[in-house]
Design a protein around this nucleic acid. Structure first.
Length: 441
DNA sequence: ACATCCCGCCATGCA
DNA sequence: TGCATGGCGGGATGT
């Protein structure tokens, strides 16, 4: 198979891709790849880009690019071939991304090769449901019915058939992993298990959900991937299973980190980093229900990668980025994302309260939520001015025309949406007697 | 030396 | 049978 670098260098124009383009909005630009790759002999005698850097190929960066491409209000359907082509990666990597995104409610699988973009407005509901499931599992209540057709929310209990489990870790998984299957804890229920179940139980999507569940229900603030793997896998498993599980958790953590759901922090007393949940998850919250993630003073150092700072994959020197750059880009995402939220969540979840779009997304400014709190009682006028001034002052200087256009689109969408939302929000507050946008989870 | 995690092989399921 | 999906772990890269 061709390497990703080769694929990036040779734009595809297959009939399938042409079909994708019909469904995908024409306005969405491709993210340009590096020009003129230089190939050298790589692993297995295959050609590899001389300027190869694994950081440029990271799942987190890919996820940021994916979101940057598709998190727009005019995107509804996403073709996997189209995504792979635009992002210049192999289809296999797209599967990794969409599985994680789907498991947190950002995407929904529509058909073979096709996903629907829900956006970050879908996250609150997905997390709420995840948390509810997790709590039910903890308390031993009957699990919620599973309506999700995709593998992501499938059963992850273990099989009774003989699956040739040499290392015996499946048994420990049965004991350790949270379980969604309605047939669990029901001795009389049929437990005929398919081989596909066994496969799905190990899916990246399900693992993502179980990983998130740990954050939603655990008492500690942070968790290392080793700890998470132990919790998800159980003690007494083969070392190989553990290594594989940790590998997958690295994949998931990088994607979730790029989405700003979690944050990698360096533990002072250990070489291994830990991950801290940043999303609203029942952790200590301010009065208005918004979680503020504050690292324990002097104990940890944020290790978070600057995902989303190099949208084009062009810059070779990814590391040691100026910490102000992510903030610039984050705000633009926040605008488009909130636009999405307003249309989706506010309409659909108004009765339950919603503010998800203010929290999630690779471009969300780190201080924005704090700012929301600080300004929470000052009224909409101040908020509008603050957000707009932030948007103006944080305008990133993209080198790429297409991304510049994308940014401009976000800004325009954000401006038009916010004036709408400011009106709508005051109406909602009149109706519900509470700050709706801060009410969530 | 060890942590990180990309890469792509190949098993599985489905039309 | 061919294609879509995605688990899996080898081993390259980063620290």
């Amino acid at each position: 198979m061709a390497t990703a670098a080769v694929m990036a260098a040779v734009p595809s124009s297959s009939p399938a891709d042409a079909a994708e383009a019909v469904v995908m909005t024409e306005a969405v630009p491709s993210l340009p790849q590096r020009q003129q790759p230089v190939f050298v002999e790589g692993r297995g005698g295959k050609l590899r880009d001389h300027a190869y850097s694994r950081k440029q190929k990271s799942l987190g960066l890919l996820c940021s690019n994916f979101v940057a491409l598709y998190n727009r209000d005019d995107v509804e359907s996403i073709g996997l071939d189209d995504a792979a082509r635009r992002l210049g990666v192999e289809r296999r990597r797209i599967y990794d991304i969409v599985n994680v995104l789907e498991s947190v409610g950002i995407l929904v699988r529509k058909a073979k090769n096709r996903y629907s973009w829900i956006g970050f407005g879908g996250v609150p509901m997905a997390l709420r449901e995840l948390k509810e499931r997790a709590l039910r599992e903890k308390s031993g209540l009957a699990p919620l019915p599973v309506e999700e057709p995709s593998a992501a929310i499938m059963s992850d209990d273990e099989d009774e058939d003989k699956m040739g489990d040499a290392d015996g870790d499946t048994e420990s998984e049965k004991l350790s992993q949270p379980v969604d299957n309605p047939s669990d804890n029901k001795p009389g229920a049929p437990r005929c298990r398919l081989r596909s179940d066994h496969r799905k139980e190990k899916s990246l999507g399900l693992l993502t959900q179980n990983f998130v569940k740990l954050f939603l229900t655990m008492e500690v603030d942070t968790i290392s991937l080793d700890e998470a793997a132990k919790l998800l896998l159980g003690e007494g498993h083969a070392e190989n299973s553990m290594r594989t599980k940790v590998r997958r958790l690295y994949d998931i953590a990088n994607v979730l980190s790029s989405l700003n759901f979690i944050d990698k922090i360096q533990q002072a007393d250990s070489r291994k980093p830990a991950f801290r949940w940043l999303g609203s998850a029942g952790k200590p919250k301010a009065e208005n229900g918004v979680t503020i993630a504050v690292p324990p003073p002097g104990k940890t150092i944020s290790n978070k990668r600057a995902f989303g700072t190099e949208l084009t994959n062009i810059d070779i020197n990814r590391s040691r980025l100026d910490s102000t750059i992510p903030k610039k880009a984050k705000l633009t995402q926040s605008g488009g994302e909130i636009l999405k939220n307003c249309k989706l969540s506010v309409q659909k979840q108004l009765g339950q309260g919603s503010k998800g779009g203010f929290v999630y997304g690779p471009f969300h400014p780190a201080g924005a939520r704090k700012q929301e709190l600080d300004n929470g009682n000052k009224g909409h006028t101040d908020n509008v001015q603050n957000w707009e001034s932030l948007a103006a002052s944080f305008r990133p200087q993209y080198q790429n025309q297409a991304l510049g256009d994308l940014f401009a689109h976000y800004v325009e969408a954000w401006k038009s949406w916010y004036s709408e939302f400011a009106q709508g929000s005051s109406m909602m507050q009149q109706h519900f007697g509470m700050p709706v946008i801060n009410q969530f989870l």
